[in-house]
Nucleic acid binder design. Structure first.
Lengths: 214, 214
DNA sequence: GTCTATAATCGGATAGAC
DNA sequence: GTCTATCCGATTATAGAC
C-alpha cells in the first residue's frame, strides 16, 4: 500500500542526480566537475541541484556513500588465519576497486583530496577513524604502521587507476596479490615495528624466501 | 665581458614568474592555480606571462624543472652495499621531499596529475622512463615490482605531505626509514618476484625477523 | 518539483599602445 | 619588456515564476 507523501518523481530524480554526481566527481574531481554538467547528465536544470542539496560541497558529501561499511569489513579482514591477513586485505581492497560501481567514490576522493582542503579533511578523518584506529587497536600495532600499508594501497590505486602506469594496469589480480600481500603482512605483524632494517642482517629476506619456497 | 642582447631585467622577471608558478602549482594544483594569481605573486601583469610562455600549460611545463637528475640519482642509489639499497632509496626520497625548495615540483605533480590528463601523462612518462626502465634493468627485477615501490613511496608522500595524516606527519625521518626500507629492499631484491605469498608458509616473516634480530 | 533569468565573479587569452 | 583594455566564456548561487 503506497502511502501519501512525496511522489515517485522526486526520489527518482534525486537518485539520478546523485548518480551523475558520483560519475562526474569520480572522473573530474571536485573542482573539475561542475553542477551544470552534473545537472545535464541527470537531465534536469542546475537550479534543481541547489534546491535539493544546497551547495556543491553538500552535494559532494551526499554523493559519497561508500560502497562498504568499514565497521563490518575491517573485522572480517582481521579475523581468520593469521598468516593470510595480508592476502585478505589486498583481495578486499582490489574487490572494492574492481567493482565498476564501487570504484567511483574512491576515485572521487583521490581526485579531490589533493586540491580541496575540505575533501582532504574528509579523507584524513576517514582514514584515522575507520581504518587506523580500528586496525591498530585490533592488531596491536602502532598507527604509523597501519598508515604505512594505507600508503602502499592508496599509492597503488593512484598509479593503477588514475595515472594508468602500464606495468600496474596490465598486472593481473593474482600478480598484484602476490606482490602486495607480503607487504601488508609485514605491516600488520606485531613485533616487527621495532625492527630496524632487518634486511641488513645475515641472509636477509631474499635468502629466507628462496629457502622457504624451494 | 657582457655581450649585447637581452637585458638583465628580462631574466630576473622570468625567474620570478617561474618561482611564483612553482609555488602556486605546488599549493593549488594546475587547475586551482590561476595565471592572474601567479602574475600578482611575481609583481607583473598577467599578459606578460602569455608573452613569455604562451599558454598556461607551457608555463607549467617550464616551471617543472625537477631538483634532481634521475640519470645521476638512480645509479647512486643502486650502487653500494647490496643489503642497504632499500635504506638508500628511502633516504634519497626523503631528502628530496624534506628540502623545502625541492618539494614544490613533486607537490605540483601529485596535485595536478589526478585531474589533468596532460600532467598525468607527464608523470606516467617520467615514472616509466626515468624510474621503472632504469631500475628494472639495473636490478634485474620486473617493472611491475619497481612500480610497487613507486606506489609505496608516492602513497607515503601523498598521505604525509598532502593529506597530512597525523601518524605519518609526526613520524621522524628515522622511524620512516626503519619502516619503509625493508619494503623497498623486498621489491628490489631479485628472486622474490615469483614468490607467492611467502608469509603463508612455515614461520613466515615475523618469525624470521624475531630470529634474526633476537 | 522544476524551470527561467540573472546576479556577481572569475577564468584564459589576445591586440595593441608605450 | 611591460602594460591597459577587452573579448568571450564559464562558474556557483539565488529569486521568483509556474
Amino acid at each position: 500500500m503506497a502511502q501519501a507523501g512525496r511522489r515517485p518523481g522526486q526520489t527518482e530524480t534525486r537518485e539520478e542526480i546523485l548518480e551523475a554526481a558520483r560519475r562526474r566527481f569520480a572522473e573530474q574531481g571536485y573542482d573539475g566537475a561542475t553542477v551544470r554538467a552534473i545537472a545535464a547528465d541527470a537531465g534536469v536544470n542546475a537550479a534543481l541541484l541547489h534546491h535539493f542539496f544546497g551547495t556543491k560541497q553538500q552535494l559532494f558529501a551526499a554523493s559519497m556513500n561508500l560502497p562498504v561499511d568499514p565497521g563490518e569489513l575491517v573485522p572480517r579482514i582481521l579475523e581468520g588465519p593469521e598468516a593470510e591477513i595480508g592476502e585478505r586485505l589486498v583481495r578486499a581492497f582490489l574487490g572494492l576497486w574492481e567493482a565498476p560501481d564501487g570504484r567511483a567514490p574512491f576515485l572521487a576522493m583521490i581526485r579531490s583530496a589533493t586540491t580541496n582542503e575540505q575533501v582532504a579533511t574528509m579523507m584524513r578523518q576517514f582514514l584515522e577513524r575507520a581504518v587506523l584506529a580500528r586496525v591498530a587497536e585490533a592488531r596491536g600495532v602502532p598507527k604509523v604502521r597501519v598508515a604505512g600499508i594505507a600508503a602502499q594501497m592508496i599509492g597503488f590505486a593512484l598509479l593503477r587507476y588514475v595515472i594508468g602506469l602500464p606495468p600496474l594496469v596490465n598486472a593481473s589480480e593474482e600478480e598484484i596479490v602476490g606482490m602486495l600481500a607480503p607487504v601488508a603482512q609485514y605491516y600488520l605483524t606485531p613485533g616487527t615495528e621495532k625492527v630496524r632494517l632487518p634486511m641488513h642482517q645475515e641472509g636477509g629476506l631474499a635468502r629466507h624466501w628462496s629457502e622457504t619456497t624451494g
